[in-house]
């Protein structure tokens, strides 16, 4: 295992084995990774909202599922990954507060997770694993040497998907 590169909120990055990528404390946001198992190139985006077209101030691509996944895809391909071999994994999309009703706060996590599935399908990328929803935060790590995606939460054992 090489260096672990940190990806912030509304941020994305790409790296190659033996390095890895991490994002800390995902709540209702989604951490999505694209990984090519042959070249061992991986990328991660930590987006906050499902749809850039619904928001007027949308210049930060990594903030949204649609523009963020598009940008990440471009970057991993530019780094040498093959689009046909790419596999995706997602985590996050939690409902941190048990807010009643159908307010944005209540369902944004679920909408963020749905957006990933829809966009990956449109782009023909396989979603091979996910750990989304429920009511707790997650720290995630993508290890580019193995393609493993680790999920850490408060008071829970580490999960690998």
């Amino acid at each position: 295992m090489g260096n672990i590169i940190k990806v912030g909120m509304a941020d994305l990055n790409v790296c190659k084995a033996p390095d890895g990528l991490t994002t800390l404390g995902l709540g209702s946001c989604i951490g999505l990774t694209l990984y090519d198992p042959v070249t061992k190139i991986g990328g991660m985006v930590h987006y906050m909202l499902p749809d850039s077209t619904k928001v007027s101030n949308n210049s930060n691509k990594a903030k949204f599922a649609d523009t963020g996944i598009e940008e990440l895809l471009k970057k991993v391909i530019a780094a040498g990954a093959s689009k046909t071999r790419l596999v995706a994994k997602i985590a996050g999309g939690a409902k941190m507060f048990e807010v009643s009703g159908l307010s944005d706060v209540g369902n944004i996590g679920a909408r963020n997770a749905e957006a990933a599935k829809k966009i990956l399908k449109e782009k023909g990328i396989r979603l091979v694993a996910e750990d989304t929803g429920l009511n707790y935060g997650r720290t995630v790590e993508l290890h580019c040497d193995t393609g493993e995606f680790l999920i850490k939460s408060v008071g829970k054992p580490i999960k690998t998907i």
Partner: peptide, 15 residues
């Protein structure tokens, strides 16, 4: 829970 996970809620609202 983790600070960043809780703060994702207001971050999304502002976002």
């Amino acid at each position: 829970d983790m600070a960043a996970a809780i703060l994702s809620v207001p971050a999304i609202e502002f976002g």
